[in-house]
Design a protein around this nucleic acid. Sequence first.
DNA 1: TTAAATTACTACGACGGTATAGCATATCAG
DNA 2: CTGATATGCTATACCGTCGTAGTAATTTAA
Lengths: 137, 137
Amino acid sequence: MILTKTSQYAVRVLTYMIQSDLRVFSAHHLIKALSIPDKYLRQLLTTLSKAGFIKSIRGREGGYVLARNPDKIRLSDIIEVIDGMERYERCLLGFPSCSDDNPCSLHRKWAPLREQMLHFLRETTLDEIRQNDITKF
Amino acid sequence: MILTKTSQYAVRVLTYMIQSDLRVFSAHHLIKALSIPDKYLRQLLTTLSKAGFIKSIRGREGGYVLARNPDKIRLSDIIEVIDGMERYERCLLGFPSCSDDNPCSLHRKWAPLREQMLHFLRETTLDEIRQNDITKF
DNA sequence: TTAAATTACTACGACGGTATAGCATATCAG
DNA sequence: CTGATATGCTATACCGTCGTAGTAATTTAA
């Protein structure tokens, strides 16, 4: 798969939160709503909190709140924190030195596609995703 | 990364063989020429042999020979044998049911890109790669 | 015939991604 | 103040990918 499961989970959680009218989401609520494994999502939520995407509110009545201005969050921002973007930027055959000037045998055909893919990841924001009005999480 | 290392190795081995004037390649030769870990490449060569991409010749003076008509070998044929193509065909967010009629929130923007990527993997043949005249393996 | 050169098979270990479990910590309703 | 409801931290296990190691089987040059 292109994204790791963890990145998929992260994107799903944040898109779910941004399109909902609620403000505070408990881990329990998100686990039920998104059918993501309990303990695993809890860890992920802590990661997203530390990364500044959401803010945690501890104690009774606590939960998670979107932190940043969500239209500013890009897919690549999320992926960078979870898996790192580097894997999507590399040469398809794994050469560290592959470039226009020193291409591998697939570079000429692959590089433009890769650029499109990176553009997609870097320019797609959560706000834009919300505007699709999709309720599949 | 987009391709697994094993798939990268497989593509590199086959492109190397197809562009060379030699006919028989020993594992030892390929390991030196491509700087791929010894035992790991030997396993891979056996896999490629069983899959019919190459033919093994055992015993002294033995090695591997390209089996099929190489212009017929597509990137997706190689990947299918090593990792399976399924991971490249799936929904970006991992939904099993994602489609034009029942899209996830990224489908509209992602699906066309995925199609281009799949077209690239399915239509690029080793013969076409050879014509690039690149000697980076 | 024999030794060298070669591929084939199988087991093992390291590592990262995924998932589970238990206990610690924090906060507030009552 | 206390119990209930939350999140935070850490250890463990599983699985697939990647890599290593040793031994067996095969063929041919000499």
